[in-house]
């Protein structure tokens, strides 16, 4: 690999790590399309590498939340029973799905995430940090487990974390405070992504020379991101991320229509 490509991969990793730490989403969703569109990686390999970036974001950022007792470890562990099962099954199925279908699924997911981020940005306009976490007892475990199973499935299939599915379900239906839901989802993502990453790694879909510079960048970006997070308005980060994912989905659709991803 050329030095230029190496530097670009590190920079992409830093951006993904920053987005992951600051917006709580998007660590993974920008890496897969960038690798597939601009580096010409087959979808399965792009997803395999992205899974490692997702683990890196989760590991680097969740230690902070655990330390400050924002993460509900018991709730996370329970839902992980479902996310890991979904991730394992989906990772096994993914190899039978052709590249083009995967690309179409991913493009749909990108559009959905862009939409959900616009909504999140809109509600976080005048955000006030809830300093004290109110007492709560998680409700409706069966629904939470089902949503986690689906989120895990998407993670194994597309290499994403599945936060846009889990967080709303935990917040709206399980009655978990939003900050706890986000931190717990982030905590779970590492284990979920690792489960499917083993399958991708075993299949030879994780290219070390591409994953190493990306993951190094993701670590640097996530660690820096958690430090500057209190000083940054989430609204601007989310709007920036919406712009990036919007652009990437247009690029993916264009490439699909012109017969790419074969």
């Amino acid at each position: 690999m050329t030095l230029v490509a190496l530097v670009i991969l590190v920079l992409i990793g830093i951006c993904a790590g920053l987005f992951g730490a600051l917006a709580g989403v998007g660590g993974g969703i920008i890496v897969t399309p960038l690798l597939a569109i601009y580096f010409g990686l087959p979808m399965h390999q792009a997803i395999g590498v992205t899974l490692l970036c997702v683990i890196a974001t989760s590991t680097a950022t969740s230690s902070q939340y655990v330390e400050h007792h924002v993460t509900d470890v018991r709730l996370g562990m329970t839902l992980e029973l479902a996310t890991t099962t979904g991730a394992l099954l989906a990772a096994l199925v993914a190899s039978r799905i052709d590249r083009r279908t995967l690309a179409i699924l991913f493009a749909c997911f990108l559009l959905y995430s862009s939409g959900s981020m616009v909504r999140k940005a809109w509600t976080s306009r005048h955000e006030e940090r809830e300093e004290v976490i109110p007492d709560y007892t998680p409700q409706k475990y069966p629904l939470g487990l089902l949503a986690s199973f689906v989120a895990g499935g998407f993670s194994g299939l597309l290499g994403i974390g599945g936060g846009p599915i889990k967080v709303p379900v935990m917040y709206l239906f399980m009655k978990v405070p939003l900050r706890v839901a986000a931190a717990t989802s982030n905590f779970m993502i590492g284990v979920t992504a690792a489960t499917s990453a083993y399958i991708y790694w075993g299949r030879g879909d994780v290219r070390v020379n591409i994953a190493a510079p990306l993951v190094a960048g993701v670590f640097a970006g996530s660690l820096a991101g958690t430090r500057i997070a209190p000083k940054v308005r989430t609204f601007y980060i989310l709007m920036l991320l919406v712009g990036v994912t919007g652009w990437l989905s247009v690029q993916m659709i264009y490439k699909l229509l012109t017969g790419g991803f074969r």
């Binding site: 018991r74 562990m77 329970t78 992980e80 029973l81 890991t84 099962t85 991730a87 394992l88 990772a91 096994l92 284990v191 690792a194 489960t195 499917s196 083993y198 399958i199 991708y200 790694w201 075993g202 299949r203």
Partner: peptide, 23 residues
């Protein structure tokens, strides 16, 4: 109860490891 839940998650992840990396 939660020790058993952790063991369950561990079992699934180890299964993925065995299916993926070992084979």
């Amino acid at each position: 109860k939660y020790a058993l839940v952790s063991l369950g998650v561990l079992a699934i992840v180890v299964l993925a490891y065995v299916l993926g990396i070992q084979t």
